[in-house]
Simulated scan of single mutants.
Amino acid sequence: MSQSAPAARGPAPASGGGSRLGRFAARLTGPLGSWWRGSVIPGIEHRAVIAKVDDEASLTPRYAFMILMSAGIAVLGLLLSSPAVVIGAMLISPLMGPIIGLGFGIATIDGNEIRRTAMTLAAGIVMAVLFTALVVFFSPIKDVTSEIAARTRPNLFDLLVALFSALAGAYAMIRGREGTIVGVAIATALMPPLATVGFGLATLNATVFFGALLLFVTNLMTIAIAAAVMARLYGFGPKLTSRQSGMQAGVIIVVFLALAIPLGYSLSQIAWEARAQRQAREVLAEQFPRQAKIDQLDIDFAGDPLTIRATVLTPQFRSRAAALGEARLAKALGRPVKLSLDQFRVGTAAGDAEAAQLASASASAASLKERENAAMVGRELALLAGVPAE
């Protein structure tokens, strides 16, 4: 059955033996390739796999219902900043099916399959984004929670997570190990980024919208590419000539690089910010006695100059600590720095550190209240003057 099954998507595969690339690949794989083609591929129930992929990638009332329920759970979990609720949305999301189906369509260069799965996927995306945007629009809570912020800045590690998870998911689909799909659904997290896109749309927050959209597109394309690679590896796509295979491989590599380069830059930026945090702590610690403690450190990386706010609990005040720290931080980070430093004196008696931390927290709360009041007054003045709030 498995030998004749590939005929469901075309006749026996072209050998490509007449091309230099095909002969080189044959010599490169040698006995391993012969064993794979003779022992592994014949053991795959190709017709059953294709039927299962087609069923999972169909636009049905069940698919639409599960999309809406998953999207609703996801956006509520994001607004509540509840990882457990967000994981629940991942588990019931049906988006993995059409994406893997798209990968199989790419592997077999089946135009009808690509169009069908793309329509199913597009319908699911539109339903999820519009539904989550509607929920957020009527929600009294519209704060950017930590769960939302975590999905607005994808990097190269997110691409690698999607790649490894997709390889596992495609393998599970081909080898009939559906239980693995649950873990893959959690790892790739397709629905939460879409819910975050809906949040960005409802709140007109471009940073959230485009950041989450990039994360979703990264996951989508990586899963489709990985599924296509696994499908070809297991003998799907029998109609392809060596030239078609080469073009297919070239497109996959270009798409993967197009995703990896910007995500790699994002990862390097995140790594630089982590180093900057560490260097800032070290530089500030050098300005004070050993018993001093940096209670709070906030860096605005988008500012120019770089704005750093720090609170230090110290047994001795340092009058020039801010000026010296600002100069050394600018030299260490290679960027202009504006340092705002608050010092709270701490004694050596028991409880002094706790009292200073309470004082620091109270001062921070008062400062926040002052900024909120100033912002409110600014908005009112802008309305009276008929000019933008900036």
Score class of each variant (00 low, 15 high):
Ser4Ile: 11
Pro6Gln: 03
Ala7Leu: 07
Gly16Gln: 10
Gly18Lys: 13
Phe24Tyr: 14
Arg27Lys: 15
Gly33Gln: 05
Ser34Trp: 05
Ser34Pro: 02
Gly43Tyr: 04
Glu45Asp: 15
Asp54Phe: 02
Glu56Ile: 05
Thr60Trp: 07
Ala64Ser: 13
Phe65Pro: 07
Ile67Glu: 00
Ala71Met: 04
Gly72Trp: 04
Gly72Leu: 08
Leu78Pro: 12
Leu78Thr: 03
Leu80His: 12
Leu80Phe: 12
Pro83Thr: 06
Ala84Phe: 10
Ser93Tyr: 01
Met96Pro: 09
Met96Asn: 08
Gly101Asn: 00
Gly103Met: 02
Gly105Leu: 01
Gly111Val: 05
Arg115Met: 13
Arg115Asn: 09
Thr117Asp: 09
Gly124Asp: 00
Ile125Phe: 10
Phe131Arg: 00
Ala133Ile: 01
Pro140Val: 05
Ala150Asn: 09
Ala150Thr: 01
Phe157Gln: 13
Leu159Ala: 06
Val161Ile: 15
Val161Gly: 03
Leu163Asn: 01
Ala166Met: 05
Tyr171Ala: 01
Met173Ala: 02
Arg175Lys: 14
Arg177Leu: 10
Thr180Pro: 05
Ile181Ser: 10
Ala187Tyr: 04
Leu190Val: 11
Gly198Leu: 06
Ala202Leu: 04
Ala202Pro: 08
Leu204Asn: 14
Ala206Phe: 12
Phe209Val: 03
Ala212Ile: 13
Met221Glu: 00
Ile225Arg: 00
Ala226Pro: 14
Ala228Thr: 13
Met230Arg: 00
Arg232Trp: 06
Leu233Ser: 04
Lys239Thr: 07
Lys239Trp: 01
Thr241Gln: 08
Gln244Met: 08
Ser245Gly: 12
Gly246His: 03
Ala249Ile: 07
Gly250Ser: 14
Leu259Arg: 10
Leu263Val: 10
Gln277His: 13
Arg278Ser: 06
Arg281Thr: 10
Val283Ser: 04
Gln291Trp: 00
Gln296Met: 06
Thr307Arg: 14
Ala310His: 03
Arg328Pro: 06
Ala330Pro: 10
Lys338His: 11
Arg345Gln: 11
Ala349Cys: 06
Ala361Met: 08
Ala365Gly: 05
Ala366Val: 02
Val377Met: 05
Arg379Pro: 08
Leu381Ser: 10
Gly386Leu: 02
